[in-house]
Each structure stands twice: as C-alpha cells, then as structure tokens.
Computed example of a mutant assay.
Amino acid sequence: MASARPALNGQTLSATAADVADELGFEHVTVSEVARRVGVKPASVYFHLDGADDLRGRVSALALTELGERLALALAGRAGRDALEALVDAVRGYAVEHPGRWASTQVRITAPEAGAAGARVAALMLAVVRGYGLPPKEQTHAVRLIGSTVNGFVRLHVHGSFDHSDPDPEASWLRMTQALDTALTHWPTTATSEETAR
C-alpha cells in the first residue's frame, strides 16, 4: 500500500525547499523543483505561496529559526570565552550540516518571518558580546566581526581551499577562536582618526 502524500501547505513546502537547498544549493530553490518533489503541478504550489522569492524567504525563515534554537541550546549557562566557543562551533556545525539553509541566511532577507527569526539569532550573538563588557556602541561591530570571520572560514573550508595545505583546518579553527576571544577581550574603545573626522 502506497504511503499517503504529506498535506500540501506552507510548512511542507518550506521544508521541501530547504531540503532542495541543502542538496542542490540555495540558488536551485524553485517552484518547479519543489512541485516535482511533492508530486504536484507548480500551479498547486502557487496556491500556497507568492512565488520563488516567497519560497526562498520561507527557507531563510526556517533556517534562522533552526539556527536560533541551536544557538539557544549551545549558549545556555555559558559566558565569556566558553560562550564564544559554543557560538562559533554551533554556527559552523549548522553551516556544514545544512549548507543550503546556511546560504539562505547570507542574503538580504525581506520575509517578515525571517526577519523575526534573524533578530533572535542577532540577540543571542549580542548576548555573547555583552559578556565581554563591550560598550553598546561597539557591540554591533563585534557581532559583525564574529559573523564575517566564521562565515569566511566555513566558505573556504567547504569549497576545499584548505585541502592541500598544512596545518589541519581544525588547528586553524582553534586559532581563529582564540583570536576572536583576544579581539573581544582587548576591544578598542576609542574611535579611529577616520571616524573622528566624519
């Protein structure tokens, strides 16, 4: 007896699109591909969403929600360097396990649901930064440093940039985390001459 087809709704379509992103790449998330996977015509998919942009926005929302849940668990009861290590390891782990979902979080997001989920991720990252005692005006700079450093490392590693060089990338990852901890611990609190001149 054939198994029943899952109910066709926004949640099912979002999950299917997220799987497409992980398997084929976020750029391959299309209404036609999702329709093919759930066994319906594209017109049936359009009944539940507003097109490809809406579909990709739903993937972003799903990914940021999952990432937020993972970060909340990883950071519970941690502070300082312990929290920083938990943060970067959780982000890297999610990016490696779900490359397409992760890619969906690296683009401009317009979906309201994604914005709310992204705000939670940002708040958790800010909490780690606050643990280092940075003044409010410096906290966004620090969050951007962490995010861009982790994202850059993950992108290079996933694309094989470290495959033919020593030492092992894991050693570099530890050094990177140490460097971030040092940067946050000794964060410059005075404006540069360029900033002062503005």
Rank of each mutant, 00 (worst) to 15 (best):
Y132S: 08
G100H: 09
L84P: 06
Y132K: 02
A117Y: 04
G131L: 00
A197H: 12
A17Q: 02
L55I: 13
D89Y: 07
A21Y: 08
D166V: 08
A7W: 03
H141S: 10
V154S: 00
S32D: 15
L49T: 04
D19T: 11
T16D: 07
P136Q: 09
V45I: 15
R155D: 10
G51M: 01
A74I: 01
T149G: 03
P99Y: 12
A183Y: 14
L134E: 04
A72D: 15
E194H: 12
Q11M: 12
V143I: 13
L84V: 11
E69C: 05
T182D: 15
K41W: 10
I109C: 08
A7H: 08
T105W: 08
G100W: 10
S60W: 02
K137M: 06
A63C: 02
H164K: 08
P188I: 06
A86E: 02
H48P: 01
G147M: 04
L55S: 06
T190W: 09
D163L: 01
E138Q: 15
W102L: 01
A116D: 11
L64A: 11
D181N: 11
G57Q: 03
A35K: 00
G133L: 04
I146F: 04
A35H: 02
R92I: 00
L8D: 05
A17D: 06
F26M: 06
E194Q: 13
A103E: 11
A95I: 02
L49F: 05
L49P: 00
S32V: 15
V121T: 14
E138S: 14
E27W: 06
H28W: 13
Y132P: 08
V45W: 01
P167A: 02
A15H: 09
H186T: 08
T185V: 04
E27Q: 10
L174F: 09
A103S: 10
K41S: 13
H141V: 07
A72Y: 06
A122L: 14
D163W: 04
